[in-house]
């Protein structure tokens, strides 16, 4: 459960994203890698949730890293690099999902999740988290995508709307209904 040490752990200082960004924009690949190392775990768990497959998520991440390196100089506020990387991840993941051949079986994220939990973790949070993971599977595909983009990716309604080609109001409505469905599934709510 402990995150891997940051590359700067030897001196106990965490370099700010802004400094790493500035150096990466100036062509410093070491700084770029440090930046990626910091945010990749969030990007990967997000991509796995979106695509439903570790292999697909890794393809998404490879492409996202390359694009991030090329476009980093267009990022206006270096403090927002994390949400910028998550947005790039959404775009690449949605592209991949849309071009994927139908009927190709994909890993079941919820099952994988349940299997990979240690008994200790399961005992503490497993029941609730497991129930949520299970409930997520009952959502319609698009509602699942919206929920993941909002809750895991931290995207705005506007961003989600653009990616899915629907209106922001529709995103808000579907998200609210998705949450209600999740609560109903998890708590046996009557509606």
């Amino acid at each position: 459960m402990t995150p891997s040490p940051a590359p700067t752990a030897s001196t106990g200082v965490e370099l700010p994203d802004a400094l790493l960004c500035a150096r990466a924009v100036a062509g410093d690949q070491y700084a770029f890698q440090a930046l990626i190392r910091r945010h990749a775990p969030a990007m990967r768990s997000y991509a796995i949730r979106l695509t439903g497959s570790t292999a697909d998520a890794d393809d998404v991440l490879q492409e996202t890293f390359i694009q991030a390196w090329r476009k980093l100089d267009t990022l206006e506020d270096a403090a927002k690099v994390r949400s910028w990387l998550m947005t790039l991840t959404s775009r690449k993941a949605i592209d991949l999902i849309r071009t994927r051949k139908p009927n190709v079986p994909i890993d079941d994220v919820a099952e994988t999740h349940a299997k990979e939990q240690t008994p200790e973790q399961s005992a503490i949070t497993g029941s609730e988290i497991g129930a949520l993971a299970k409930a997520l599977k009952t959502l319609p595909k698009q509602s699942q995508e919206i929920w993941v983009m909002r809750e895991v990716g931290g995207s705005s309604y506007q961003e989600i709307a653009e990616l899915l080609d629907i209106s922001p109001a529709s995103v808000r409505g579907k998200l609210a209904r998705a949450r209600i469905k999740l609560v109903q599934e998890m708590e046996g709510w009557d509606s």
Binding site: M1, S4, I36, A40, S45, R49, T125, I129, A133, V152
Partner: peptide, 24 residues
């Protein structure tokens, strides 16, 4: 619980970062 799930899944990716070493 949503926050717990997101944090747990991110920590899981961070705790074994051999995939990241390979990728980088």
């Amino acid at each position: 619980v949503t926050n717990d799930l997101v944090t747990e899944e991110e920590n899981k990716q961070a705790s074994d970062s051999s995939w990241l070493d390979t990728m980088l």
